[in-house]
């Protein structure tokens, strides 16, 4: 996922050992509120099918 043709320019030549954890946290920071918002809308949308 991090691959690069130019290791000195930002690739996985020196892959960050904390990379997967950082990635998980970053996606959780945006994913949890987004999922909560979507869930609220899904609940509201159900009124259409009742």
């Amino acid at each position: 996922m991090t691959g690069s043709n130019h290791p000195s320019a930002g690739g996985d030549a020196a892959a960050d050992p904390l990379g997967p954890i950082k990635l998980l946290i970053a996606w959780a920071v945006v994913g949890i509120p987004a999922a909560w918002g979507v869930w609220q809308v899904v609940l509201k949308s159900l009124a259409l099918f009742r």
Binding site: M1, T2, G10, A15, G19, K22, V30, G31
Partner: peptide, 21 residues
């Protein structure tokens, strides 16, 4: 702001999402 070697590009979409959300 230039990424250092080892930076995972999949960290950029959550950064963008944080602004757009």
């Amino acid at each position: 702001t230039i990424a250092r070697p080892g930076f995972n590009r999949w960290l950029v979409p959550p950064a963008a999402l944080a602004i757009h959300l």
